[in-house]
């Protein structure tokens, strides 16, 4: 990973002129058309726009889950555009926490084990310390009394809260949330959003939320609207 720029410490994530095509042959679509974006620590950003405008595609690129066809991405000041799969994987484990629309909990594991999973991979803490931190995070999202329930024994809202706790497990600099409230009712949406933003602000993390929900977007620090692969 080669440092290309030395951005101010407050910038957790930056992308410049990012292009992405999806599909093959005649079905090939230019989804992102030179998108540039910057996320500061302790700030919550909403990316809004109609379906198919490229919001989620941008999020996956920023989360290093996908590779851009053009442009550059920096994570914590490190250029990740041409990094190897191993470097990108390591960067995800250390710097990025994900919250997805469909929760994606590991159903065979308890809430506690789900939250401990990123910590186990990183291997920085002892078993006892991991367990304690997972308990703290689950308590913070109001799931302290359901730590030993399997994913299948939790409601949608509860699963999403566990997913938020899991995204914060390794204290990443960036939280990327793709429609985190998309599958939840209004009450649960509010609870989940509050937990996410509150914890992120406490820990000085940059949060980028892709959402269709105008109410959620309205409560973020900044809103970026997208249409046809560009920010308006």
């Amino acid at each position: 990973m080669e440092p290309v720029t030395d951005p101010p410490d407050k910038i957790a994530l930056r992308c410049s002129s990012v292009h992405r095509y999806l599909g093959e042959g005649e079905g090939r679509v230019h989804v992102l058309k030179g998108v540039s974006f910057e996320a500061h620590r302790g700030q919550v950003y909403a990316v809004v726009g109609p379906s198919g405008c490229g919001k989620s595609t941008l999020l996956y690129l920023l989360g290093l889950l996908d590779r851009q066809d053009g442009g550059d991405i920096w994570i914590n000041g490190r250029l990740m555009s041409n990094s190897s799969d191993a470097e990108r994987t390591a960067a995800r484990g250390i710097n990025i926490g994900f919250v997805f629309q469909f929760h994606f909990l590991m159903q065979e594991f308890t809430s506690l084990e789900n939250v401990m999973m990123p910590m186990r991979k990183l291997g920085r803490l002892t078993e006892a310390a991991m367990r304690e931190r997972a308990h703290e995070l689950l308590s913070a999202v109001g799931m302290g009394d359901k730590t030993h329930r399997l994913g299948t024994q939790l409601s949608g809202g509860e699963q999403q809260r566990v997913a938020i706790a899991r995204s914060l497990a390794n204290a990443p600099a960036i939280i990327l949330a793709d429609e985190p409230t998309g599958n939840l009712d209004q009450r649960n949406s509010g609870i989940v959003f509050d937990f996410l933003t509150q914890l992120a602000k406490q820990n000085g993390q940059a949060v980028i939320i892709v959402t269709h929900n105008p109410e959620i977007a309205g409560r973020c620090d900044a809103v970026r609207s997208m249409r046809d692969g560009v920010f308006l």
Binding site: R92, F98, N170
Partner: peptide
């Protein structure tokens, strides 16, 4: 597949 994807998003390598 989605569990594999989420593991990869958490930092689990292809080798893992």
């Amino acid at each position: 597949t989605k569990e594999i994807a989420i593991l990869r998003s958490m930092g689990y390598t292809r080798g893992d």
